[in-house]
Amino acid sequence: MPYTHSGLFIPCYINALYPEVGVATWHLLKDLGVKPVCPAGQTCCGQPMANAGFERGAIPLLEEFKKRFDSFEYVITPSASCAVFLREHLGRTGHRVYELCEFLLDVLKITGVPGRFCHKVSIHNSCHGVRKLHLSSASELVEPPYSKLRKILSLVEGIEICEPANTDECCGFGGMFSIEEPSVSVCMGQDKLKNHLDTGAQYITGADSSCLMHLQGIAQREEAPIRFIHIAQILAAGL
């Protein structure tokens, strides 16, 4: 089957800050019968520059990306916003890029995951995940409610799943926005964190480590009693 040989893209910040997310994704895919290949020399998709207004600066990175991943039928990445960016900017190659949960549900059509996770988790829906990748229904649209994150988490044994109030409101990360508009960014993050804390969850989880990094930064500053974990780590828990 073609997806047994798929490319794995590890976004730059996952590489440097949260390599355990990459490792979990790797093991999870292997466990599900996919033999991921992680081409050497991959760096960043270029999204941080483009969102800041330097799309042209991202072009060489996109070219590099193409070179490394063009031969794969599927390219998988544990980051919704990188997947969106690649899909929108890479033409033909872009259509083969999948965010991890999307790949597991829509391509592999899995009905079970190896992980067991006996904790209460609050789902963090990222804006690009919701409104660009359609990982869940958007609160603004009149459409039947659905959530791929919830669906896939519900396959995990022992887990209790909840969602914060205003579940798809932006957490305020927004890449360069977080440092160009620090006051609004932090304010949005504090509100988001509060809604997560109000669920009584022990963990906040999501498909975008970038939002989680921002929220975690606020939680640490405020010494809030909650932990952060990427969804791949829950799905692969125990592997």
Binding site: H128, R131, A138, F173, G174, F177, V184, S185
Partner: peptide
């Protein structure tokens, strides 16, 4: 132009 986190809402 900075007043946007690109949330697309």
């Amino acid at each position: 132009v900075s007043a946007c986190s690109l949330c697309y809402s």
